[in-house]
């Protein structure tokens, strides 16, 4: 949370996160670039530019796969939630690594010609009508453009400027980038492979990423937030005694939005389930220091009016609520963000 924009709001966890990420990237590149040439028993070595391009390209693919695995892993097991916390830095680093891969390719395969490099990239192979020999470089370039757009718009300034729903939709382009990268590899280097390691690693990794998403989707469908049932003009969420102190129950309202009903100091309050920051699921958070705390990035709100404590300015909608015969009923019409609603005593 911040009252002003600064490049990075560093804290110890972000330092540790980025340190581990950079150590992983450095380990990958160091082993690939400096250790494996000694292991390979080729009569003549692979050109260093090609070797480096492969190192950065493979690293970018692995990083992108890890990034995409974090979301479903966090849905399936909340212990993975901390990996979500600073995932944007992972994404920005991936864009840098992918750019290095593209740089090596552009300055090697598309250099040394009277045709300018960028023209050569576009024009040297135009065999778009056939899978074998398809200009797979275009798929990689397309994915890189997406990664660079996502990296450039990863800062909270863009999140606020574009609004969370638009920003999130924009950042779903990561899936298009991944599909493009998978096609880039499938139609490119995989076509020439005799060694089995890369094809097996690539297929297993891409399959695991897809499997995790399907698994998380099915689990969400099975244990997802229940639809609130109508009680006249109000919607029934749950029984009041089903809500633990400091926790919430989430229900889906007829307009498709979710409400989170929290119990704090024995009283119930209802707020929007969507965090103003990145639409994180507030109802899966906890009340810490009397404030609802988002599980994704720790944004906090007062449970009675949906406002972040001063000096922060984030606001979310609240809902009117009553308890009738032990059932928690919510008015499905949301109050404007920041509207105070008196908490309701549990009878």
């Amino acid at each position: 949370m911040s009252v002003k924009y600064i490049p990075v709001q560093w804290n110890p966890n972000k330092w540790i996160y980025d340190g581990i990420m950079l150590a992983g990237v450095a380990a990958f590149l160091w082993v690939f670039i400096h250790v494996t040439p000694e292991i390979l028993s080729h009569e003549r070595p692979i050109n260093s530019q090609v070797h480096n391009a492969r190192a950065f390209g493979a690293c970018a693919f692995l990083m992108l796969s890890i990034i995409l695995a974090i979301g479903p892993l966090a849905k399936l097991d909340t212990r993975f939630m901390p990996l979500l916390y600073n995932r944007r830095h992972f994404g920005v680093m991936t864009a840098f690594v992918a750019t290095a891969h593209a740089g090596y390719i552009l300055n090697w395969y598309f250099a040394f010609s009277f045709v300018p490099k960028w023209d050569a990239l576009i024009l040297s192979n135009t065999n778009y009508g056939q899978l074998l020999g398809f200009p797979f470089e275009a798929l990689g370039a397309f994915a890189l453009v997406i990664l660079l757009i996502l990296a450039a718009t990863s800062h909270d300034f863009w999140l606020k400027f574009l609004t969370a729903p638009v920003w999130k939709r924009l950042h779903y382009l990561i899936y298009l980038a991944y599909v493009s990268v998978v096609a880039h590899i499938s139609l490119g280097i995989l076509q020439d492979q005799q060694s089995l390691f890369l094809p097996v690693f690539f297929i297993v990794t891409a399959f695991l990423v897809a499997l995790l998403h399907v698994w998380a989707y099915l689990a969400e469908r099975k244990t997802g937030d229940p639809l609130a049932s109508a009680e006249g003009d109000w919607m029934r969420v749950c029984q009041a005694d089903e809500i633990d102190e400091g926790r919430a129950r989430i229900a889906l309202l007829p307009d498709g939005k979710r409400v989170a009903v929290f119990k704090h100091e024995g009283k119930l309050s209802a707020i929007s389930n969507a965090c103003a920051h990145q639409n994180g699921p507030l109802g899966e958070g906890r009340i810490i220091d009397c404030l609802v705390t988002c599980p994704w990035h720790g944004f906090q709100y007062r449970v009675t009016d949906g406002q972040s404590p001063a000096p922060f300015t984030e606001k979310i909608p609240t809902y009117n609520l009553r308890v009738q015969d032990g059932a928690v009923l919510v008015d499905p019409k949301a109050n404007p963000p920041g509207t105070h609603v008196d908490p309701v005593e549990v009878a």
Partner: peptide, 30 residues
Amino acid sequence: FLIGIGIGLILLMAGVGLGIGATQDDPGNG
């Protein structure tokens, strides 16, 4: 758990780098 994930991530990345890098096809003797 997080320490394990962190160490595992670094080892995974080093291992994959080794696996892919050390199994590249011979480019020929040209």
